[in-house]
Amino acid sequence: MRSGLKPLRDCLLMQYKNLFIDLDDTLWDIHRNGKECLEEIYRDYGYEEFYPTFEAYYRVYLPGNYHLWGLYGQGEITKEKLVVERFLAPVRAFGIDDPEYAKRLSDDFLERTTRKTKLIDGALDLLDYLKPKYRMHILSNGFREVQFKKIENSGLKPYFDKVILSEDAAINKPHPDIFTYALKNTNSRRDQTIMIGDSWDADIVGAYQSRIAQVWFNPKGIASDGFEPTYTVQRLADIKDIL
C-alpha cells in the first residue's frame, strides 16, 4: 500500500456513524430457517399427496416465492397477494384455489419462522465488533408481525437502536422514500450512514439511488450491474476490515 493511502481510507471511514442493516439473509438465515418451516408444512399438511418428496415441492415453491417478493418490493402486488399466492401457486394445479386456506397456511408458516434462530455465519461476531463503534438500525421489507419476534428470539435485539420496516414507511426498499424515512426516524445524516445488505436490488441499488454508501454482502460472488457498490464482501467477517 502506497504511503498516505491508509490514512486517507481511515479518514473516509470515520465519517460513518450510522449503519442500516438488512435482516433476512444478511443476519437472519431465511433460507435455512424458511426451508425448515416449509418441510414442516409439507409434512403436517399432507403435501406428499401432491409432491412425492419435499424437494419436489420446494423446487416449485422457491422460484415462485422469489418472483412474488420481487413484485412486492417494486410495489406491484400487495402483501396480501404475496402471502396467499406463494402458497396457492404450487397446489393450484391439484385443484386447490382457496385464498382462505392459503392465508391460514401462510399465518402458520410465518408463526413457525419466528421460532427459528439460525443466523448467517459470523453475524453475532460482526455485531459484537460493530456495536461499540456505531449506531445500528435494522432496515427491512419483512412483515411487522414476524420481524420483531425473529429479532428477539434470535438474540439480535440488544444490538439495534431502531427497527425500521417497510410497513411503517408505507413503501418498500428500494424506493428512495424508505431510506429518507429511515434517516429521519433514526436522526441520521445521509453522508454519515452506510447500508449493509445482501439484496442487490433492494439494499444496494436502493441505497445507491438514495445517495447512501453501501456494503454489499455478496456470498455467491454475483456480478454487479450498472455501478460498483462502495464496498463488496463475500463473508460478514470481511466487514470488520472495512468498518
Rank of each mutant, 00 (worst) to 15 (best):
W69L: 11
E48Q: 14
Q209F: 10
S166F: 00
A123N: 08
Y61E: 01
K149Y: 11
N185D: 07
D10W: 04
D191Y: 08
P90Y: 03
W216A: 00
S3L: 15
W28Y: 00
T78P: 01
E55T: 12
L5T: 07
R43H: 15
K184M: 05
A202Q: 08
T53L: 13
G197N: 03
K116M: 15
A223V: 14
I212M: 02
P158L: 02
I239D: 04
S210Y: 00
G64P: 11
K6S: 08
G142H: 02
L156S: 04
K35N: 09
D121Y: 14
R43S: 14
L68T: 01
D168W: 14
G197P: 01
Y51H: 03
G142S: 01
P176F: 10
R144C: 08
S140W: 06
D238H: 09
R112S: 08
V233P: 09
T180V: 11
H31R: 13
P63A: 15
T114W: 03
L156Y: 07
Y72D: 01
I96W: 15
I151L: 03
L12F: 12
T186D: 06
D97Y: 02
Q214D: 04
I41M: 07
Y45N: 04
L124R: 03
I164Y: 00
F87I: 13
F20H: 02
L12W: 13
S3H: 12
N185F: 07
Y58S: 14
L88I: 07
L13G: 05
E36K: 10
E228M: 15
R112W: 06
Y47M: 12
E100C: 01
V163T: 09
L27S: 08
D225S: 14
A223M: 14
L71W: 02
L165T: 12
R86M: 13
L124V: 09
G221Q: 07
L126P: 13
D125N: 06
L23W: 10
N65S: 15
A202E: 09
E49V: 13
K131R: 11
T193W: 00
N172M: 13
F50D: 03
F217Q: 01
K6F: 13
L139T: 06
D203G: 03
R104G: 07
Y159A: 03
G4T: 12
L71I: 11
A213D: 14
R235D: 10
P52M: 00
Y134T: 00
G155R: 08
Y129A: 02
T53C: 13
L62Q: 14
F50L: 09
K150I: 01
E145P: 04
G4S: 14
R92L: 13
R211E: 11
Y208C: 07
D238L: 01
L124H: 01
F148R: 12
A93D: 11
G142D: 00
Q74I: 11
V163D: 06
E36N: 02
T230S: 09
L126R: 11
E85R: 12
R59S: 07
R189Q: 15
L105A: 11
K149I: 04
L5E: 08
L105Y: 08
V146C: 00
L8S: 10
Q214G: 00
D201S: 05
Q214Y: 02
E39Y: 07
L5A: 12
E48N: 05
G221M: 05
